[in-house]
Simulated scan of single mutants.
Amino acid sequence: MIQYHGLHHVSLTVTDLEQAKNFYSNILCLKELPRPAFDFAGAWYEVGGQQIHLIVLPTSQTIRQEKSISSREGHFALRVKSYDETLSWLKQNGVAVLEKPESASGFAQIFCADPDGNLIELNVDKKDI
């Protein structure tokens, strides 16, 4: 049997590191972490004790060609404190979103994508709207 302590990190491939860093640092407001001196470009971010690792690999098979936002495509979810404040911030910064405040999941969800089309869900419990 495997026993888990939790999720450590999610790795995402990106094509333009500066554009990706702008999104994760300035739009998603995540704190960049020191990163080992790998022989490839990337960046690490802290999210409540877990991490997001960005890896520059323009030839990646995981870069989505279709950049539309869909809640059914592969994504990762971040829990936020305020649905309304998060939605307002994203819209204020020109980020396209898919709003699902009444999702059957039990979460109020906001979906968006980074510049490479990696999908991100931002959510709160419905009771916290």
Rank of each mutant, 00 (worst) to 15 (best):
V14A: 02
V14I: 13
V14N: 02
T15K: 11
T15C: 08
D16K: 10
D16E: 07
L17M: 01
Q19N: 03
A20Y: 08
A20C: 05
A20K: 07
K21R: 11
K21M: 02
N22L: 04
F23L: 00
F23E: 00
Y24F: 06
Y24L: 00
Y24G: 01
S25E: 03
S25M: 01
S25R: 13
S25D: 04
N26Q: 08
N26G: 03
I27N: 04
I27L: 05
L28C: 03
C29V: 11
L30Q: 06
K31A: 05
E32K: 07
E32S: 01
E32H: 02
E32D: 02
E32W: 10
E32L: 00
L33F: 01
L33W: 01
R35F: 03
P36I: 07
P36Q: 09
P36F: 05
A37H: 00
A37R: 04
A37M: 03
A37N: 05
A37S: 03
D39R: 09
F40D: 10
F40R: 11
G42C: 04
W44L: 00
Y45D: 02
Y45R: 01
E46Y: 07
V47R: 04
V47S: 05
V47M: 04
G48H: 10
G49I: 12
G49T: 07
G49L: 12
G49D: 10
Q50M: 08
Q50F: 10
Q51Y: 15
Q51H: 15
I52Y: 15
I55G: 09
I55F: 15
V56N: 07
L57E: 14
P58I: 06
T59H: 10
T59D: 15
T59I: 12
S60K: 03
Q61F: 06
T62F: 15
T62L: 15
T62V: 14
I63T: 09
R64L: 13
Q65I: 12
Q65C: 11
E66C: 15
I69A: 08
I69T: 07
S70L: 11
S70V: 08
S71T: 12
S71M: 13
E73S: 09
H75A: 08
H75F: 12
H75R: 09
F76G: 02
L78S: 05
R79Y: 11
R79A: 13
R79K: 15
V80I: 14
V80T: 09
V80K: 08
V80L: 09
V80S: 07
K81C: 09
K81I: 13
S82T: 09
S82Y: 12
S82W: 11
Y83D: 05
D84G: 06
E85R: 14
E85W: 13
E85K: 15
L87N: 08
L87H: 12
L87D: 07
L87G: 08
S88W: 13
S88P: 04
S88Y: 14
W89K: 10
W89D: 10
L90I: 08
L90M: 06
K91Q: 14
Q92E: 15
N93G: 13
G94L: 10
G94F: 06
G94V: 12
V95I: 15
A96M: 06
A96W: 00
A96N: 14
A96Q: 12
V97F: 06
V97A: 11
V97N: 12
